[in-house]
Design a protein around this nucleic acid. Structure first.
Lengths: 109, 109
DNA sequence: TACCGGTACTCAGTGTTACTTTGTACCGGT
DNA sequence: ACCGGTACAAAGTAACACTGAGTACCGGTA
């Protein structure tokens, strides 16, 4: 991935994962595949797992082990109330930043 | 500054500084003041100087020392062609990311 | 004269984060 | 028996914004 891309993801990726989980419960591998389809093509698998560990430790998700037909048991993550609150905060932070950047860009023209 | 805010700035602030310089040549203290007015209120002064050192080393700006009426001489930065190219690239990267996030957000509703 | 506040820049150290790499383990198909 | 896809985990690295402290110059005030 280009360096600029990955740096810009910092502070955003966690919100992205929360947003995916807001749609439905999911496990790590599934989330990675999902995001890759959504344009985050070069996402490293390990990155997603690291984020999941983080948000689990912060208590933003509930976790359940589910046996899988293929490979080891899946760790299914479900967004809880704290997680939803965090996601809402993420979107407002994002919007504020996006607005400021848009203003800067307009001015430059 | 809230942790979420500052993390989200990563990979973005450099582009922001380039965008300011695209408007006019400026020196560090001036850029800091400018950005604070533009809503980046809690920007640390040292942060801007660090970015300026970086973009100077990458050859994105031309530098000129100008005597000041107050305090030490100012280091005035002017965006050059490489800098303008970098800024253009920044905006496309930003747009791509913003589009992807917007798509995620829409889907969540 | 002495001091303070605003201007202007510099630098060393810190914490967070995404990436890389590697490893474990299970399964079905060839 | 082996390989590729599924699924998770963990240690180490690099980039970057922040913090805090320091240097230095000037004008105004007490």
């Amino acid at each position: 991935m280009a360096k600029q891309d990955s740096e810009m993801l910092k502070g955003v990726l966690e919100g992205v994962v929360l947003a995916v989980l807001a749609g439905r419960p999911a496990y790590g591998y599934e989330i990675t595949a999902d995001l890759r389809e959504r344009g985050f093509a070069d996402l490293a698998e390990g990155t997603i797992y690291a984020i999941l560990v983080r948000i689990e430790q912060r208590g933003l998700v509930d976790v359940e082990k589910v046996a899988s037909e293929k490979g080891p048991p899946r760790k299914v993550f479900t967004l809880n109330d704290d997680g939803r609150a965090q996601l809402a905060e993420f979107w407002t932070t994002w919007s504020t930043l996006a607005d400021r950047l848009e203003a800067l860009r307009e001015k430059g023209k």
